[in-house]
């Protein structure tokens, strides 16, 4: 009796969360799925899916994955050494805070800031001019797109890697050195494998959102980079083809599910 009562009370606490999930996660997903079966005139059809499997959309998908991959790769290359250095500094919590701080600033603001920096008469070009290279078209290039994206995602990569490094028992490093491993071998055979969970978490946190980036593509890349996110936005807001937009969203969600499944950390006993 008591047990049943207790679990009832416990279930009651779940109600707000369950409601939230149903209203804002489950229902929208079902709606998207539902919309994906209608064409622009509101007729029930599978045409959208057929269209998605044509070269135009497949190329766009490939494109999205390629950019997401580049963004994740560069974020990792910057974030891992950063996180590693952070664990060695004296005031690591302060430094960590400074790295996280930009995430508190609105995304749009940061992107506008880069418009200024990378613009024709911006800071970057001023520097290039002074050192004699001369002004370049920086904005609306692949470079600026990836640069800004990496800048925005770095904190999400640093944090899980930092945590994984912090959890690493320092005597394991001593042990590896003691057994004859050089600093590099120690990193390769002990430090990196043991922080892989953090790397995976960081890659998830960067790769998945970068698949559906759209605002940066428009503002920084000047619509030269078309990703799945851009296409979805375009279909919903410009062409009003909700069915096609929903179909792309369905594929995007499938892709995310696959990635989460692939990089999901298998439970490991400590």
């Amino acid at each position: 009796m008591m047990k049943a009562m207790k679990s009832n009370v416990r279930n009651a606490y779940l109600i707000p969360y369950a409601l939230w999930i149903i209203l804002f996660v489950v229902a929208p997903i079902l709606l998207i799925l539902y919309y994906s079966f209608f064409d622009i005139e509101g007729k029930w059809t599978f045409e959208n899916y057929e269209k998605f499997l044509t070269p135009i959309y497949l190329k766009m998908t490939l494109n999205s994955f390629w950019y997401a991959f580049l963004i994740t790769l560069f974020s990792l290359l910057v974030a891992y050494p950063t996180a590693y250095l952070l664990t060695k500094t004296k005031h690591k919590q302060l430094w960590l805070l400074l790295i996280i701080l930009p995430t508190w600033v609105n995304l749009l603001l940061k992107v506008y800031a880069f418009l200024g920096i990378f613009g024709t008469f911006g800071l970057a070009n001023a520097i290039l001019k002074t050192i004699g290279i001369g002004a370049k078209q920086i904005l609306f290039t692949d470079f600026s797109f990836i640069f800004v994206s990496v800048y925005i995602f770095i904190p999400f990569m640093v944090l899980p890697i930092f945590n994984a490094l912090e959890e690493l028992n320092p005597s394991l490093i001593d042990a590896a050195r003691d057994l004859g491993a050089s600093a590099w071998t120690t990193f390769r055979r002990v430090v990196f494998p043991l922080t892989l969970s953090g790397v995976k978490a960081g890659c998830q946190a960067v790769f998945i959102p970068s698949l559906s980036l759209f605002m940066i593509t428009r503002l920084i890349a000047g619509n030269r980079v078309i990703t799945l996110g851009t296409a979805i936005e375009e279909h919903f807001l410009v062409t009003q083809d909700w069915g096609m937009g929903a179909t792309i969203a369905v594929f995007l969600m499938l892709a995310m599910a696959v990635i989460v499944g692939m990089t999901g950390s298998r439970k490991r006993g400590k």
Binding site: S171, L172, A175, R177, D178, L179, G180, A181, S182, V190
Partner: peptide, 29 residues
């Protein structure tokens, strides 16, 4: 440096590599 010395250590907390099995731990060096 430690990796160039003819000494080996048994650590207080053993410092065994958790991602390797017994064989690979012993085979590390």
């Amino acid at each position: 440096p430690a990796n160039k010395r003819q000494v080996n250590t048994v650590f207080q907390d053993y410092a065994l590599f958790p991602h390797l099995d017994v064989f690979e731990n012993v085979a590390f060096g």
